[in-house]
């Protein structure tokens, strides 16, 4: 992270905007997880390309909870001897994930069509 310039960080932040909710929901599809776990997972899966800022992670989680897409519960962590706050996907959240996913796909396709018109022809 220290090697990253300020500009790159900015890029990541922009990329995350609006898609963070979807990524969290998708992560929770694997099963319940606590906040830090979710953040780490996203970061690891993208090979550290997406840096999880705590400042956006927690507000996002609470936002999703408020909307009723995830629910939370304090549970004992299996690998550690402590209680952690686990988030899990609700039924509504599952539906929302599908919606977000299809929206994202449409968006990506639309962008692709503009960016690489040749690929479309072939």
């Amino acid at each position: 992270m220290s090697s990253m310039t300020r500009k790159e960080q900015q890029q990541h932040a922009n990329l995350l905007q609006g898609t963070l909710d979807m990524l969290i929901l998708r992560t929770l599809l694997y099963g319940p997880a606590h906040g830090r776990h979710i953040g780490k997972h996203i970061q690891r899966t993208t090979n550290d390309f997406l840096q999880m800022q705590h400042g956006s992670l927690y507000p996002a989680l609470h936002r999703l909870e408020r909307k009723g897409w995830v629910s939370s519960k304090w549970e004992m962590a299996p690998d550690r001897n402590r209680e952690l706050k686990y988030y899990r996907l609700t039924e509504q959240g599952r539906k929302q994930l599908l919606v977000e996913e299809s929206k994202w796909k449409q968006m990506a396709e639309a962008v692709a069509r503009v960016m690489w018109p040749a690929a479309e022809e072939s």
Binding site: G55, Y58, P59, L61, H62, R66
Partner: peptide, 10 residues
């Protein structure tokens, strides 16, 4: 700041 911002969600 994180606490404030998250708090503001509710």
């Amino acid at each position: 700041l994180i606490r404030e911002q998250t708090h503001a969600i509710w």
